[in-house]
Amino acid sequence: MSDSDHTHETAPVTRFKAPTRLDYTVTAAAVTADFLRHILEQRLVGRRCPVCAKVYLPPRGVCPTCAVRCHEQVEAGHAGTIDTFSVVRIPFEGQVLEPPYVCARILIDGTDAPLLHIVGEIAPEEVTLGMRVEAVWDDRPLPTLARVRYFRPEGGTP
């Protein structure tokens, strides 16, 4: 071996790294852009289907059940009910929050389709189905769903 050789490992190679990475630029379509501009103003604004009258939050341009356009904007509340939830206890690559934390589907007051978000200010064991929660807004002016930092038990930690 040459002098420039720096490889001294002798154990058999049993694994290799095969990382995959795709870099996207995502552009919000009109309906989502509306939603994000409202969320920037600390408002949750969904859309109602003119046929079945369901309110979607985040809004949808077309009702998935009735296949008609949804134009009517509906201001929803800042609180809602936990529809279902999952406690994340396992660390993974790229994780933003420290486990354990709670992901929940939250049915916001005045809407008919649950929103997926985080539940905070409560121990995971304390979270229950049907629990009332309210939005805690982030101070940073983010036009993203992270404008709501998380949802916490309504009226503060019980």
Partner: peptide, 11 residues
């Protein structure tokens, strides 16, 4: 409104 999004898996 645009956003950078990276999908990466450390397989």
């Amino acid at each position: 409104l645009t956003s950078r999004f990276t999908l990466a898996y450390a397989y």
